[in-house]
């Protein structure tokens, strides 16, 4: 199918984007990489009156290493973050997750900020951001505010981003010395959305685990250094707490089993990755 009619705006800087957003309100949509929005337009799931193309906004394609976190600007594509030279060293979790996000041919245009803004419950990047405890920088004509990941994503496909705001940058905390990071997911084919995805961080005194694809948004838990049957029990309790539902991709029971098994594998891999 083809999109319905819309006006197309291509602002030259961020100020113009914010102006256009403020003017058009909920009639407008930002077009970033288009890898989610274009299918929705083609299927006429959405029919915005105005499309504001930010995909090539000058000066916003930067990845900045600020020591404690890396800051990713709104036009940085998933492919350019994936090929950022120090990614594996600075944010090993992202280095493991990005190759699983869609395909080479969608990562070439899909953006990091677009994925965070869309907040799909099965998406890899929101899970990484939640597990790492990152932040989202929001900007509107009335100013800039920074929210922790847990306050930004409010549910399935819903966030604290107002209609007149845009996600201007995302901040991913960098690797802590001595910690190990692991990301695993199960999908029907490589590149499909995950049925269940797990992120884990192993520190000297504890484990953090994040689960995507089951609840309406990523769920993060902190545990002491559990092992053996104590870990199994914790994973089992976690699996039941997520209110898994049956859908065309998998049954609730199957999802719970994936949480238990992938959870165990991922925690083991994170412990192994500790220096």
């Amino acid at each position: 199918m083809k999109p319905a009619l819309f006006d197309y705006l291509r602002p030259d800087d961020e100020e113009e984007v914010l102006e256009a957003l403020a003017e058009a309100g909920d009639d407008a949509r930002l077009l970033a990489g288009g890898q989610t929005l274009m299918p929705m337009l083609n299927m006429r799931l959405v029919e915005p009156a105005v499309l504001i193309d930010i995909s090539r906004l000058p000066g916003r394609a930067e990845i900045e290493d600020n020591g404690n976190f890396i800051e990713v600007g709104e036009t940085v594509t998933q492919a350019s973050l994936e090929s950022w030279p120090t990614l594996a060293e600075r944010t090993p979790l992202l280095a493991q997750a990005l190759p699983l996000l869609g395909h080479v041919q969608t990562r070439s245009r899909g953006t990091v900020c677009g994925s965070i803004a869309f907040a799909d419950p099965s998406a890899e990047l929101p899970l990484c951001l939640a597990t790492l405890g990152g932040e989202v920088v929001l900007r509107s004509r009335s100013g800039t505010r920074t929210l922790p990941a847990a306050e930004f994503q409010t549910g399935m496909l819903s966030t604290a981003c107002r209609e007149d705001e845009m996600v201007a940058a995302v901040r991913f905390p960098t690797a802590e010395p001595g910690a190990g990071y692991a990301f695993t997911e199960f999908a029907r084919r490589h590149g499909d959305f995950a049925v269940v995805a797990i992120a884990a961080i192993a520190r000297a005194n504890g484990i953090r685990i994040g689960v995507g694809g089951v609840a309406e948004q990523p769920v993060v838990r902190d545990w002491p250094l559990l092992a053996g049957s104590a870990l199994d029990d914790a994973l089992n309790a976690l699996a039941w707490s997520l209110d898994a539902a049956d859908d065309v991709h998998a049954s609730a029971r199957y999802r719970r089993e994936l949480v238990r098994r992938l959870g165990k594998q991922t925690v083991a891999a994170a412990l192994e990755a500790r220096l």
Binding site: Q35, S108, R109
Partner: peptide, 27 residues
């Protein structure tokens, strides 16, 4: 498919492989 899944429409845009069905002509 016109939703990015099948890959039949893949072309190179400024060298990168992209879905032509998820790109506007004006872009």
């Amino acid at each position: 498919c016109e939703h990015g899944v099948c890959g039949a429409c893949t072309v190179r845009l400024d060298g990168a492989p992209v879905r032509a069905c998820l790109t506007l002509a004006v872009q």
